[in-house]
């Protein structure tokens, strides 16, 4: 019988609020001794990008410009108002002593959470391994995600 004690989180969204929720759950799971894996796909890739401009083709570079990654650049899913909402959220989080997202991500890494980028998303959006933070694992596909899900009691899609 396979041990199903892990937590798998698919981070599809690149919205700040949803990414906060994803890292929050991951950190909590890891702190509870669960083997935790996060898969970053589509817009979620932004949360593990270094933040430099990306892309090779015309569309790729346009995407890299309009959809620039980096954990401090992503905005909330509502009330972003072209970046004002993001600033406001950060101020409010600071005022209430909530851990900033970048610190939360570092905490996840330190607790052993595995951050796996989706290879296909990287191909489509023309994001290279060098555009991602050093802490990420080897890019992988759906079979890897499903294998982790098979060892998990909870699999979330955020």
């Amino acid at each position: 019988m396979q041990n199903r004690d892990g937590v798998t989180i698919v981070v599809f969204s690149g919205d700040m609020d949803k990414v906060i929720a994803a890292f929050n759950i991951a950190v909590g799971a890891a702190a509870s001794g669960k083997e935790t894996t996060m898969f970053f796909t589509f817009w979620g890739i932004k949360a593990i990008q270094k933040g430099n401009l990306t892309g090779k083709s015309f569309f790729g570079r346009m995407m890299g410009l309009l959809n620039r990654g980096g954990i401090n650049r992503i905005g909330p899913s509502r009330f972003n108002f072209g970046g004002i909402g993001r600033w406001m959220f950060k101020q409010m989080m600071k005022a209430h002593n909530v851990t900033p997202l970048e610190e939360l991500r570092k905490m996840a890494v330190d607790l052993g959470v595995k951050l796996v980028p989706c290879q296909m998303s990287m191909e489509v959006m023309e994001i290279r391994r060098e555009d991602l933070i050093d802490e990420v694992a080897e890019p992988a596909g759906v079979a890897t995600m499903l294998e982790a899900a098979g060892r998990s009691f909870a699999t979330l899609f955020i």
Binding site: G28, A31, S32, H96, V98, T99, L104, L111
Partner: peptide
């Protein structure tokens, strides 16, 4: 004191 979710749980586990 003063710390919010998920930090208390993380510190406790450490």
């Amino acid at each position: 004191e003063g710390l919010l979710c998920p930090i208390p749980v993380v510190r406790v586990s450490q």
